[in-house]
Design a protein around this nucleic acid. Sequence first.
DNA 1: ATGAAAGCGCTAACAC
DNA 2: GTGTTAGCGCTTTCAT
Lengths: 332, 332
Amino acid sequence: MATIKDIAQYTGLSITTVSIVLNGKGARISKEAIKRIEEAKKILNYEPNMLASSLRKGSTNIIGIVVSDLHPYFIRLAQLIERDIAQYGYQVLIVGSDESDEKCEAMIDNFINFRVAGMVLAVTSGLKQRIVRLNKQRIPFVMIDRYFKGVTANVVLLDNFRSAYNAVDFLIKKGRTRIATFHYDTQMHHMQDRMDGYKAALKDNGIRFNKKLAPTISFSEANAIEINGMIKEMVEVYGADAIFFQTNRAALPGIDAIFNLHYKVPEQLAILCFHDNDFFKLVKPSITAQCQPLEELAKECVNILLSEIKGELKSKVRRVFPATILNERDST
Amino acid sequence: MATIKDIAQYTGLSITTVSIVLNGKGARISKEAIKRIEEAKKILNYEPNMLASSLRKGSTNIIGIVVSDLHPYFIRLAQLIERDIAQYGYQVLIVGSDESDEKCEAMIDNFINFRVAGMVLAVTSGLKQRIVRLNKQRIPFVMIDRYFKGVTANVVLLDNFRSAYNAVDFLIKKGRTRIATFHYDTQMHHMQDRMDGYKAALKDNGIRFNKKLAPTISFSEANAIEINGMIKEMVEVYGADAIFFQTNRAALPGIDAIFNLHYKVPEQLAILCFHDNDFFKLVKPSITAQCQPLEELAKECVNILLSEIKGELKSKVRRVFPATILNERDST
DNA sequence: ATGAAAGCGCTAACAC
DNA sequence: GTGTTAGCGCTTTCAT
């Protein structure tokens, strides 16, 4: 593949001149030289080698995003981040770890090895030590949605406690008293916050927390058969009159189960999901869900990242975004 | 950030020795040296610089995937490709062009600038010349799903003609005679193939093609209001008794419209989609859709890419995958 | 078993 | 306006 050296030889100019022109800093170079260089570039099918230029410059213009899963929520977030940060000349690359600690860590390492300018991380639960080490490595990064207690780092997240609280409170105000949910077998604080919000809303409304209405399931995978059985038990044995799905990974098989069991929604059983989805308005009855302030999350990520890259950030930032609005539909 | 030079200084060994050990080729290096190097690596928080090593080696281990849109179909495909090609030591990076020619071309350029080992491309319609140039640049790549007539390149795709043919034939066998669809305003051959399959199935069953039942809409964006109006006209003016959605971008607002218009599905109007979606079985009535041989597509992509990278491919390959199976549900 | 040195393609400080 | 040169961090050939 052609190099600037080839262009220099072809045009009879020096490497420097070629480099200056190719980088658009050709103000002080003669029109004649510029023309010849542009011509040679086309003819030789020149493609700049970012490995070389980034190595030399000591940095890339890439922002690496590692998310736990490539679901629509994170894809959308990445697109918003991309849109915002493109103005500053950065490109965005997104990878998904499938909730695997090993993959997540490997992906972070890969980004570092490629000397990305910064990272946005929605990490898996086992990454605490890696995040601590990231700080030592002085690499600009922002955690998103997920964080670790006792670890100082920039973090941007939803108010998971408040969102869950509001959701459950909403159901109670609608007259529901036996609100079921799934408890996830994870150490991730964002999930614990949601569970705490659920419990707090019950308590503030004088309803006792009932463990039978919050059975534990796997966070990283949804076993449809297991979920089906649990829902049947919640409703038929423990009299659940509403289900609050904290994740869509469980909501999809869950809603499928509810429909197959032919419970009357919302009369017998109300449904409310933490995250919205395009299809929730298509389903009959349509599903009530919360909608997240993704734009603000993205904007804040970009702000923090840019300050961190420029070295303007004196101390780490923690931003929590207000509880989410409810898209009320037929299921509640 | 620490370099191998730092490790060399710290351990008192040479750069060469450190490099050999860090690359796991330390068979001929003393245990003692290896131990000291591993230790220094931890203490100094060393991270290899891929920019430098790739520059030196002349290649990266990255496979770049550019897709027209980050929807579930391509995400899934990318995951399958990743799984298959990881065994050969490659990593996968996926980006979406949002059906924009400029972004698509810029993303390909970026990958080339980073000297990816190969690319998988589902390009936008204006990229014909760029693909021609890619061939000249001798970069290993495989086109997927989308291709250009008259351009020699590796391509792996669904049998779009056959799939559409089978879908429409299926509807006819079910007794439908006035099958509507949307015609897309794009030059992409994969879409034209689908349209041709639609027409051929009608013809083979003795049904005349009716332009009123195949109005033209934008390929890259779905205007819900426009689609709503068109469906109303198809059904109420031109008596459509079935709709074949060739893309899910149109299917989502389309199905929404059908439900809102309260047509009886499938009695009055049958629905069939080219691509499946997790939610199609949740919707009432559930939506019949085709399912694509994604595993095979991914596997073939990987095979071709690996051969191309190794330089084993004598001539370009074109692989068309058999018509897709139908997931029959309540909407037909 | 270990080291010296060249060079991958590029940028930038400096010289003319 | 244009050229010379050093060096980014690494791998690899060739010595020792």
